[in-house]
Amino acid sequence: MNQFGHKDLLGLQELRPDEINLILDTAEPMKEVLGREIKKVPTLRGRVIVTLFYEASTRTRTSFELAAKYMGADTVSISVATSSVQKGESLGDTARTIEVMGADAIIIRHSATGAPHLLAKLLDARVINAGDGSHEHPTQALLDLFTIREKKGGIAGLKVAILGDVAHSRVARSNIWGLTKLGAEVRLVGPPTLIPPEIEQLGVSVFHDWRQGLKEVDVINVLRIQLERQQRGLFPSIREYTRLFGLDEDKLQVARPDVLVLHPGPVNRGVEISPGVQDGSHSAINEQVTNGVAVRMALLYLLLSGGEQSAISA
């Protein structure tokens, strides 16, 4: 089994803290490669990596594709409109077809929770979850962890607030797993209708008042608010949401003076985060993007550079 010990990356829930640290440690030299003029190493030459995105995404897909190319692999990207899934080829058939054409790894983003698990069961190729339903988005959490570690020197003991629509957020869930496993204190801040049931059992605290939730925190990870949540009656209006939970300079005051602000992107400017904070000195949003490529390079290295036979015949 490769050193990483897994055939696929489906989520952070099943990883041990040392495995998460291995990915983060490996991402550091990868970031150095990104700083060179020739951003390419031959490590994954001859490997084929397919991105299969059933949900639109420029940021994550491009990040994965670049990571693969910088590692010397060949990439193919497939964007599938949701309607064709239900009318046409099933997910399993699509994936099997891709695999027999020679794909070594499939990176999948899908609105259905559990879709990557279905693929991992059906295929020998490595499966990387680029976001499934409301379940997990492990590479986003990994790059968040990397960014925090780089800026703060470590994760253990930090107070990290996750602000916004936690109930529907796979980014939040993956972050909760990663942060708690590495010893951070996690706070969720949002209205009751957007906090999932019984989540305190994961070892996090829940706050509905930002004054309490953001007090003295080291890191604030701001989640995107999706407009259709308002249509489903989960909060009364964007205006009220922004007033009570949108991150602006005033709310930042209660946090620590060196607080770090993260956002998975894309940002609804002025809604969940004010332009001043988004572009301000606390924000590491742009670095997250660079770190995302490095983390994904590390992941591809760990999953794909081991021996073929050995990885499967665990």
Binding site: M1, N2, Q3, F4, D25, T26, E28, P29, M30, E32, V33, V41, P42, T43, Y301, L302, S305, G306, G307, E308, S310
Partner: peptide, 23 residues
């Protein structure tokens, strides 16, 4: 110089070697 990423025998190894930073 860390040359791990340039090795020609990675696919033959049963494990992936630790990469350290090139500086």
């Amino acid at each position: 110089l860390d040359i791990t990423l340039y090795r020609d025998d990675l696919s033959k190894l049963a494990y992936n070697p630790v990469i350290r930073k090139t500086d």
